[in-house]
Design a protein around this nucleic acid. Structure first.
Lengths: 174, 174
DNA sequence: CCCAATGTAAAACGATCGTTTTCCTTTTCA
DNA sequence: TGAAAAGGAAAACGATCGTTTTACATTGGG
């Protein structure tokens, strides 16, 4: 396995489960099975490593949610939560932990959220053939709500969001 | 102003804006205007201080959202976001930052979320006269979604959730 | 009047933080 | 074959972490 990929995979696990600040470099080097010398050669710094993690997370997220109707979007989220559990949005958590004052992280978060909003708009367009005003924002809110309520409510939260989205979409259909 | 109240108020600000782990005790003592000796006499430890902050936040949150219909609930959240901005749910962030492994914090979060779920169920009961299955979960998801989407979408996210909630409530009305 | 409580200022605690460096070994490929 | 790149192990960097302690000042109430 590629060194950088191994590092990023280990870092994603640790940052996700224990938080960015609370995860020390020694735990990262141990989990990635490499020396700190190699880690810094590949990642540059802890903040840049988190940015790499977020970029990888964005790729995986977008790939798993590459569907073309709204119901399938929530179904995919349901699968994700069932398989990996829910700990809230890693992007928002990273931003909050750093107070938005770490440029690499803040940038990665902004890019991801913008891309996801565009993705939702595209799904709605494909699903409905048009883009009713404010519908994309509502679907976004439902998705974000499912993601975070699932932390303590589990997949039930995702199913509730899914049902709510179905209602919204049906109301918007011609 | 009472010493403990001053400390908790200062700590809430710092923890909320910069994160739990990233906020050092020296910044807390400076912001609260007291020595570390006094801080530890009143709070016991950093984790217990965070638990005090969460308890205070819970009181303020519940007080501001003490309404008796669903639309007013989202209106109150809109006011909150307009006045204080949105940085996501402090409870979920605190839990995530500590990986759920700090008992005082995990307990405060669980207690808050349970209380809020019960509050939503009560509002629906008062608003509707009954409690349709799954409706409370949907309103909870919308609220959580508004809270977190507002971090990058501002009050628009809350308004979208509010509109969505209105649709749900109207569909549930006799 | 004095005791007990409550506070401050500041040093010190060991631990851990993110990062760099030193020295040495292994791999790669022209 | 031989130079260059890449990695490992470990020490060291100064800084900061959460917490405790020491020594002293201020207060309110019996």
């Amino acid at each position: 396995m590629e060194t950088t990929a191994r590092l990023v995979a280990a870092a994603e696990q640790l940052f996700d489960r224990h938080g960015y600040t609370a995860t020390g470099m020694d735990r990262l080097t141990e989990a990635a099975g490499m020396s700190s010398r190699t880690l810094y050669k590949h990642a540059g710094s802890k903040a840049q490593l988190m940015a790499l993690v977020l970029a990888e997370r964005d790729r995986r997220f977008m790939a798993r949610l590459a569907v073309d109707d709204v119901d399938a979007l929530f179904a995919a989220l349901e699968d994700w939560v069932a398989e990996e559990g829910a700990r809230g949005c890693l992007f928002l958590r990273a931003r909050a932990e750093t107070g938005g004052e770490t440029p690499e992280i803040a940038h990665a978060v902004a890019a991801h959220k913008a891309a996801f909003q565009a993705h939702i708009a595209a799904i709605i367009e494909h699903d409905l053939g048009g883009r009713p005003p404010a519908l994309a924002e509502q679907i976004l809110v439902l998705f974000e709500g499912a993601t975070h309520a699932a932390v303590y409510r589990g997949v039930d939260a995702v199913r509730a969001a899914r049902a709510c989205a179905e209602l919204l979409m049906d109301a918007a259909r011609p």
